[in-house]
C-alpha cells in the first residue's frame, strides 16, 4: 500500500474537481451543407481523435492501447508518435446531442504541459469509424497548445461521397 500511495495521490490530483476546467473539443457531424454527405449518429460506432505534434517538435512516447472509462474509450500513442483517443459506441450514445439535423459530441481534454513549453501547435484530426472503417473525417486543423482551459475548439467531420450510404446506415 505504501508504494501505491504516491500514485494514488497523483491520480486524485489529476481527477479532482478543483482544477481548471477542461478544454472542449466540439465535434460536429456535418449535415452535408458544408461538404460531402449527411451523417447520422447511429452510423458511427467509434470516434477517433488524433493529435499529431508539429514536424519540428518531438513525438509522443509510443504506448500500447489502454482501455479507460470502463472500456468506453481507449487511448494509445501510435508508432508514429501520434496520440490517439478512441471513443466507443457506448460513450458516443451517452454523450451525443442533436446539432441541427445531425449530432455533436463534446470531448473534454487537458494536458499537464505548461504554457512556457517551447512547442508549436499540434495538428488535430477526427474520424468517425464504422466496422473499423473511417467513413467520415475532419480536415486537419491546428489545436492551440496547450489547449486553453474552458475554451472550445470546433471540429467538423465530413462524409465523402464514397461512404454516403455508410454514413446513413443505422443497422
Amino acid at each position: 500500500m505504501g508504494r501505491r500511495l504516491p500514485l494514488l495521490l497523483l491520480m486524485f490530483a489529476q481527477c479532482g474537481d478543483g482544477g481548471p476546467p477542461p478544454h472542449l473539443l466540439r465535434i460536429v457531424a456535418d449535415d452535408g451543407s458544408l461538404m460531402g454527405n449527411s451523417i447520422i449518429q447511429a452510423a458511427v460506432q467509434e470516434i477517433e481523435i488524433i493529435v499529431v505534434p508539429d514536424i519540428n517538435d518531438g513525438r509522443f512516447e509510443p504506448s500500447e492501447p489502454r482501455e479507460i472509462m470502463g472500456g468506453d474509450a481507449e487511448v494509445r500513442v501510435s508508432a508514429a508518435g501520434e496520440w490517439v483517443l478512441k471513443l466507443r459506441k457506448r460513450w458516443i450514445d451517452e454523450n451525443a446531442e442533436p446539432s441541427g439535423s445531425t449530432f455533436q459530441v463534446m470531448v473534454p481534454i487537458y494536458t499537464e504541459q505548461g504554457e512556457d513549453a517551447m512547442v508549436r501547435d499540434p495538428t488535430l484530426r477526427v474520424a468517425f469509424l464504422r466496422n473499423g472503417v473511417r467513413i467520415a473525417e475532419s480536415n486537419p486543423r491546428f489545436l492551440q497548445w496547450p489547449p486553453p482551459p474552458g475554451e472550445v475548439t470546433v471540429v467538423n467531420v465530413f462524409c465523402p461521397e464514397m461512404f454516403r450510404l455508410q454514413c446513413l446506415n443505422n443497422d
Binding site: P53, R59, F60, P108, A117
Partner: peptide
C-alpha cells in the same frame, strides 16, 4: 487503484517533447 478506470470524465494528453 482507479477501480476499473471510471470516474475521470476528461482525457489527458501527455506533454509534447520540445524539438
Amino acid at each position: 487503484v482507479a477501480g476499473g478506470g471510471g470516474g475521470a470524465q476528461r482525457f489527458e494528453i501527455p506533454p509534447i517533447p520540445e524539438g
